[in-house]
Structures are given as structure tokens and as C-alpha cells.
Amino acid sequence: MTQLPLAKALNAGLKRAMEDDPKVLLMGEDIGRLGGVFRVTDGLLATFGEQRVLDTPLAESGIVGTAIGLAIRGYRPVCEIQFDGFIWPGFDQITSQLAKLTNRLEGRERFPIVIRVPFGGHIGSIEHHSESPETYFAHTPGLRVVTPSTPNDGYWMIQQAIRSDDPVIFFEPKSRYWPKGEVDLESPPVGLHVSRVVRTGTDATLIGYGPMVSVLLAAAEIAAGEGRSLEVVDLRSLSPIDWGPVVASVEKTGRAVVAHEAPGFLGMGAEIAAGISERAFYSLEAPVLRVAGFDAPYPPAKLEKLYLPDADRVLDAVDRTLAY
């Protein structure tokens, strides 16, 4: 066990994946000499050289599109998109090409590409630097979408994503880059697409992923002081969704609140709510409630606290679900 922040855990995971497989290469804007704007790739250029850590031209479609060509050639590219809001120039290559090529080639070739995307708010930044675009990708057949919430998950999930023969969109909660956590360098906790109960409870189930997990845990801690026992599920994988732990928890508690930073309308919360109602209808004591970012563009930094779901807003939803 060692203590690392998520950014350094990801760095260690990338390094280990590159040591394990010479076909793994990194590409993105400012990831080489600078080590990435969040320093996730810090030092890797010096270790692996410029044919494996590519400071690319400033063009997201170009990054994803050439990664596809490199994958055809037998490489396993890991692309960094500098910020969530900069992924859109690459969206066509991701959704029209990367997501569909395995199917187009009828399984004859593999496209083991990981696209790393720092996402979410809480960093007081300017426009386009705090978005949560995960739904667009989870909605697209052919992609896998995951997000770690802890340094340990970051270390292991990035390696698991790189080993996947399918394209993986890997969302990194940038608000969690700096807090340290325990990392087990010996063995992975669970598989890439496994959801987990991260706090047990009996009165209601809180469901979230990425940056929201720490908020849910804080909410559960506050609730415990008020005599309420809340269970917290970290989805970890947004596509596919591992329903087992989610459904088992709701069957136990009878109540569910799902939370994310992304806007609520047609967000992951809608899918979770629908999925629970289909799978655990007779266990539910209340409708599944959603706590989400507002359906407005991400606001200027001085308003982001108002925009982002916090523990209080989660607990307000808990009050409402318990009132049924």
C-alpha cells in the first residue's frame, strides 16, 4: 500500500501499462514536455521517448483519427483530451468511426484505444473546462465508458482500460486529482466494469460515480450523525452498467437517489432510475430521485457552487425519498 493522489496514481498506472506492453503509446496536447496540464503524464516522455509519448498538433479530431490508424497498425494508443469541453472536435471520429469500426470490420480487427478525459467542475475555471459530457458517449454503442473515483481505482482501471480490446472513454474526475488515497500496487480491487458498494447502509441507496462519490460519502456521513443509515454505490462503469450491486442495494433499502454533475435531463440518472424501476419495482418505497447539475450551460466559476450538486442537495433528496 502506498499513498498517492489520483493524478499520480494514473501516472503510475500508465507507466506500468507502457512497461507491460511496448505497443502502448500516449498521444495528446502538451502531454510530453509539460507532462499534461494536470501532470498526469509527467516524466513519461523522458522514460519512454517521443515515439511513445507524442506531443501532437493541436487538433482533437486528428488525435483520435490518427489513433485509429495506429490501432489498425497494432498499437494501443491512449489519447488525452486536455479538457472535457475540448472533446467535441474529436466527437465525430469517436462516435462515427472509433465506436463503429469493430462492427464495420465484423470483428476482423481490434481498436484498443483509450481516450482519457479530465471532467467535471469544482476547479473554478473558465468556460469549457468543467463539463460532464459522459452521457453522449455512454449513449453510443461500441464504446465503453468508465470513471474512477479513487486513486486506487485510477491506478488499476487505467491499466484495465488499456488492456481492453474495445475502445474505452476514460473520464477522470479532475476535482479528485489531488486528494491522496491508498493505492494497492499488488492486486486490482475488481474488474473494469464492476460497480461497488463503498459504504453500507439500510435506509436509502445513494448512487453516483467519479467526482460525485466523495460528495455522496460526505452526505452519508452527515446523515449518520442524524441517525440515518445510507448506502453508497460507486458505479465506476457507465457503459456497460453493472446492475447487480445497484439492484441488490435498492432491494435492501427500498429507496434510491442518483447524483451527477452533468445536467439532469436525459442524463445517466435517467437511465439508472429507469433501470431500477424495471428491475426492482416491487422493492421501491419511493420514486428514484435525481440530483444533478442544472439544465443550463456550466456557469462562470463564481456560480459553480450553486450549479453543482453538493451534500446538502443530496440530503434534501434523501429527505424527500424518506417522506414517501
Partner: peptide, 11 residues
């Protein structure tokens, strides 16, 4: 055209 270029980078 980008896939071709990526493949050529791989070469």
C-alpha cells in the same frame, strides 16, 4: 484520411 495518416505514423 486521418486513419491513413495514423497508420503511416505506425509504419
Amino acid at each position: 484520411t486521418l486513419h491513413a495518416t495514423g497508420y503511416a505514423m505506425g509504419i
